[in-house]
Simulated scan of single mutants.
Amino acid sequence: MSESSGPLEGAPHPASAERAVSVELATAYGDFLAIGYLDRDRGDEHMVLIHGDIEPERALTRLHSECLTGDVFRSKHCECGGQLTDALHAITARGSGILVYLRGHEGRGIGLLAKLRAMKLQSEGMDTVEANIALGLPVDARDYGVAAEILHDLGVRSVQLLSNNPRKIESLQRHGIRVDARVPLLIPPSAENASYQWTKRDRLDHYLPHLDAVTVIAE
């Protein structure tokens, strides 16, 4: 990785995201510069993976919400693990890009234990939105302001965003990061997560056009 892959000169210092450490990180997907950030307001510790040189305009970027069950244990309940893998492959295939891994976003921001309780309700027939509401919790409590601050700190002004979630686009643009293009991450549905993906499309407005062709998922 070249020396110029670090943060660009003149980037504004973020309001709450404090850069703590950077280190080269070799992974199964390729070589990255890993940068750790501390959210001084919430105490969350985030990590950024940068491959190649940072592009200030139209940087291929993924904001990935922490999902222990999907990212680590490859749960079939959601498609988070597949999205993480596909995003890293897309970034290395492009030759440059940024993945912002956002801690504190487990279960769309409700936390691990609450997410597991919501999953139990889903196994009993509720969808992911109904389960959160039944628990008296927000449907989606995530905030992407710190992600925008991190991108500002890296000198990024506009992105091509690897996402199906319109709220990520709205939040970045509200915080001064222009989204020049959306790059969908469409994971083929399985018997275990088809209903979950349909709910994200129909009730959370996620861009999932590939589900239109899906009628029956074999058990």
Rank of each mutant, 00 (worst) to 15 (best):
Ala134Glu: 15
Leu185Glu: 01
Ser171Thr: 08
Ser65Thr: 10
Cys80Val: 09
Gly145Tyr: 07
Asn132Ser: 08
Leu204Trp: 05
His210Val: 03
Asp205Leu: 09
Asp39Tyr: 06
Ile217Asn: 09
Arg167Ala: 12
Met119Ile: 13
Val23Phe: 12
Glu66Ser: 02
Arg174Phe: 11
Lys120Pro: 04
Pro189Ala: 13
Leu135Asp: 10
Gly125Ile: 12
Val129Gly: 03
Gly6Val: 10
Val129Ile: 11
Glu149Met: 14
Tyr196Cys: 02
Ile35Asn: 02
Asp71Ile: 03
Ser123Trp: 00
Glu66Gly: 04
Asp53His: 02
Thr215Lys: 11
Leu88Val: 05
Glu170Phe: 03
Arg201Glu: 07
Pro188Cys: 09
Gly82Met: 08
Arg201His: 13
Ser2Thr: 06
Leu186Arg: 14
Glu24Val: 04
Gly81His: 07
Ala218Thr: 10
Ala218Asp: 11
Glu219Gln: 04
Ile98Val: 10
Ile91Met: 00
Ala191Pro: 04
Arg19Asp: 00
Gly111Met: 14
Gly81Phe: 02
Leu113Cys: 02
Leu8Gln: 14
Asp86Phe: 00
Lys115Arg: 09
Ala34Lys: 04
Arg19Ala: 13
Ile35Lys: 02
Ala26Thr: 01
Ala26His: 06
Gly52Leu: 00
Gln197Trp: 07
Ser123Cys: 04
Asp202Pro: 06
Ser75Asp: 14
Gly30Met: 03
Gln160Arg: 15
Ala114Gln: 15
His46Phe: 11
Ala191Trp: 11
Gly136Lys: 00
Leu161Val: 01
His77Lys: 15
Leu33Gln: 08
Arg203Gln: 14
Leu186Pro: 03
Leu172Ile: 00
Pro188His: 06
Gly109Val: 07
Gly81Lys: 08
Gly104Ser: 08
Asp44Asn: 15
Glu18Met: 14
Gly104His: 02
Ala26Ile: 07
Pro189Leu: 10
Ala59Leu: 03
Lys120Leu: 13
Val21Phe: 13
Leu88Thr: 04
Gly52Tyr: 04
Ser16Arg: 11
Ala20Arg: 14
Ala114Met: 13
Arg58Cys: 06
Glu149His: 06
Leu137Pro: 13
Gly176Lys: 06
Glu45His: 13
Gly6Arg: 15
Asp180Ile: 03
Ala20Thr: 11
Leu185Gln: 12
Tyr196Trp: 05
Leu162Lys: 05
Val216Gly: 02
Leu49Glu: 00
Ser2Asn: 14
Ser22Ala: 10
Leu63Arg: 03
Arg167Gln: 15
Met119Ser: 04
Pro138Glu: 09
Asp41Thr: 12
Cys67Met: 01
Val183Ile: 14
Glu79Leu: 05
Asp127Cys: 05
Gly6His: 15
Asp140Glu: 09
Gln122Cys: 11
Ala93Gln: 08
Ala90Leu: 02
Asp205Cys: 08
Ala213His: 09
Ser163Phe: 06
Tyr196Ala: 10
Ala147Met: 05
Gly43Pro: 02
Ser190Met: 08
Ile177Asp: 08
Glu106Arg: 07
Leu151His: 04
Leu84Lys: 00
His206Gln: 13
Glu79Ser: 14
Leu63Cys: 00
Lys168Gly: 11
Pro166Val: 11
Val129Pro: 10
Trp198Tyr: 14
Asn193Ile: 12
Arg62Cys: 03
Arg74Leu: 12
Arg157Met: 00
Glu55Gly: 11
His13Asp: 09
Glu18Ser: 12
Asp31Glu: 11
Asp153Cys: 08
His51Phe: 01
